[in-house]
């Protein structure tokens, strides 16, 4: 198993902490007064998403985590698992709803996304930043409203519900920012 010393620590490095794969967010070298050098590290547990602060003795080593971010396309959901395919190797992986998480409500078949694999198994799925989805249900809008002051809820083809401007109608396709879950634009066909 590869190991990293605190000297290698930097944002994005994947390490094993308490038997879980983690990603380092930031690392600050500290040498107080005449005291012992240490690293002040912030990292995210990739399984739970929790951000943890911890200090490490300078030069201390930790195991590397076999974590890879892979571009994949989403194939289908069989009711229990979500299936993805590596576009280069055509290898397929299946992810449970915990790994898919929030991304699930934005994914449409054939969408490209980034699947984080830990020891080859999906750990998390990141939806594309923007997705284009059809509105399947929303209240009829008011004529003449172009700005959409207050907005209204709309249900999309994947089941996700977002607030849209009043002028958006059923069957129209809209662009959504998946990072904020907000309506971004109407897509003209």
């Amino acid at each position: 198993m590869a190991t990293y010393s605190t000297n290698d620590f930097k944002g994005g490095l994947k390490i094993m902490m308490d038997n879980d794969p983690c990603s380092i967010i930031e690392n600050e070298f500290v040498r107080p007064g005449k005291g012992p050098a240490f690293s002040r590290v912030k990292y995210r547990n990739l399984k739970t998403g929790r951000v943890i602060d911890r200090t490490f003795k300078s030069g201390e080593t930790v195991d590397a985590a076999d974590v890879m971010e892979t571009d994949m396309s989403y194939l289908y959901n069989d009711g229990e698992f979500w299936h993805f395919m590596d576009e280069e190797t055509y290898e397929q992986v299946s992810a449970d709803s915990i790994a898919v998480g929030e991304a699930g409500k934005w994914l449409k078949e054939q969408d490209k996304c980034v699947v984080t694999l830990w020891n080859g198994a999906p750990l998390s799925v990141a939806a594309p930043n923007f997705v284009e989805l059809q509105v399947t249900d929303t209240d009829p809008g008011l004529k003449g409203d172009t700005s959409g002051g207050g907005g209204k809820p709309a249900t999309l083809e994947t089941g996700a519900v977002v607030r849209v401007p009043l002028f958006v109608q059923i069957d129209e396709v809209i662009k959504v920012d998946t990072r904020t879950g907000e309506y971004s634009a109407r897509v003209k066909n």
Partner: peptide, 22 residues
């Protein structure tokens, strides 16, 4: 920060510096 003990060892001066800086 229970790991502080591995950083400071038995030295009170190290312990004081750690607590001060953290």
């Amino acid at each position: 920060n229970p790991e502080a003990a591995t950083i400071c060892g038995e030295s009170i001066a190290n312990g004081l510096d750690y607590v001060f800086s953290q």
